[in-house]
Computed example of a mutant assay.
Amino acid sequence: MPASAPRATSDTGDDFLLTPGPLTTSRSVKEAMLHDWGSRDGAFVRINREVLEALPRIVNGEGDYVAVPMQGSGTFAVEAMLTTFVPPDGECLVLVNGAYGHRARRILDIARRRSVVYETPEDVPPDLAEIEALLARSPSITHVFAVHCETTSGVLNPVEEIGAVARRHGKAYLVDAMSAFGALPLDARAAHATAIAASSNKCIEGVPGLGFVVARAVDLAAAKGSATTLSLDLHDQWANFEKTGQYRFTPPIHVIVAFHQALREFWAEGGQPGRLARYEENRRTLVQGMRALGFETLLPDALQAPIIVTFHMPADPRFAFQEFYDRLKDRGFVIYPGKLTVADSFRIGCIGRLEASHMRLALDAVRDVMAELGVVSASPRRAA
């Protein structure tokens, strides 16, 4: 990096993480982790209870739904949800248009649960009529699984409409809302969701280490004995909380206390609508700026969630992604490689403790790096 090139940092001197999580967090969320807490101390038990009581509210689930935490990353929560709710004699229709649908299928395979896959390309949402037809001709299917925002591409899937189809056919409905929970609108009742999985380090802007499942209490009670493991048994975890208010096994205390602070900041921003408004502005700023530089987005605007945006790689032979990535990081911005099969791409996230002003700084860095690399065009098509 030239000596004169500016370097941007957060208010704690860290790089800005333009990723789908882990992501940039506020100073106050970081500071919440500076203290030690006893896992069975009354103060910590109260903090944890407040976290769990808040989560169903975010998806309009008060009263009917409960939140069950699960130590570990978001995938731990998804695995806990699938292996607790899909019983040994069940069969799950897995809707796949990216890596996280494939991961759900693998979880079910390892757990020896039957599944049926309906796959569309990574930039195409599932077709509701096809789901309807699949369920009509496959009465053995008991559950439907969908990803709300598939960050492989950033595509937004119609989760509430899928839930309506599942309900018409009497199927339980499981949602991976990992990268959407707290930002994109999701009404658990309107979606007829049996359970929704998410984690602490996405749109609520906490730190990694805690997954959770917001589940309809009556369905969770009926899932007793279905889990395939001890540590990922959602019913057993929930039953222990109902009885003692405690985790069965050591909780990630500092993560939970930071999550508690992140939820305070989430509500102070206006909850889901407020969080979405900031992320939408981040996305608009990013997409408009990148297109002005000649980059092309993978998705049309109608399918693009304000979580992470996929851009086609420039065809210019002077563009080398690793060099592009490294030089952006030297300037304080960490982006994400692509993981598509449909196109060579990279991704830039819009979530975390970021404002439109930070996105403009990132755009300045992209422009400068492209000039340093001698890239004439950001188009994915080679000049004739």
Rank of each mutant, 00 (worst) to 15 (best):
V124K: 01
T297P: 01
T84G: 02
V66H: 03
V287G: 01
I307A: 00
T151G: 14
V255Y: 02
E160M: 10
L95T: 02
V68W: 07
A77E: 02
A315K: 03
V376I: 10
D123S: 10
T297I: 01
R353L: 14
A111T: 06
A227P: 10
V334L: 14
G38E: 14
A164H: 13
R331L: 04
A215E: 05
D89Q: 10
A111G: 09
L234Y: 10
P337G: 13
G21H: 04
Q246G: 06
L82Y: 05
R318Y: 06
A223R: 01
Q71D: 10
A136Q: 07
A239D: 08
G294P: 00
D233R: 08
R318Q: 03
T297D: 00
R331V: 05
G349Y: 05
D236E: 15
L156E: 13
F85Q: 02
V257E: 00
A292S: 13
E161D: 13
S140A: 13
A5V: 07
F44W: 06
H148N: 14
D364T: 04
Y100M: 10
S200D: 15
V59Y: 00
M33W: 04
D109I: 03
V124R: 04
A378I: 01
V59N: 01
L34I: 09
G270I: 06
T25M: 15
A190V: 07
A193I: 06
G154K: 04
R284Y: 10
D219Y: 02
A258P: 02
L135H: 08
A43C: 12
V144Q: 00
A32K: 03
E122S: 01
D109F: 13
S10N: 08
T83F: 09
G338C: 07
A191C: 09
V66R: 02
S231H: 14
L186M: 06
A371Q: 12
M313L: 11
P317S: 06
M290E: 02
P252E: 00
D14L: 15
Y336D: 12
R137S: 13
C149E: 14
M290N: 05
G289C: 07
I47L: 07
K30H: 15
G13F: 08
H169L: 13
D187Y: 04
D344K: 09
V175R: 02
A32Q: 09
P20F: 11
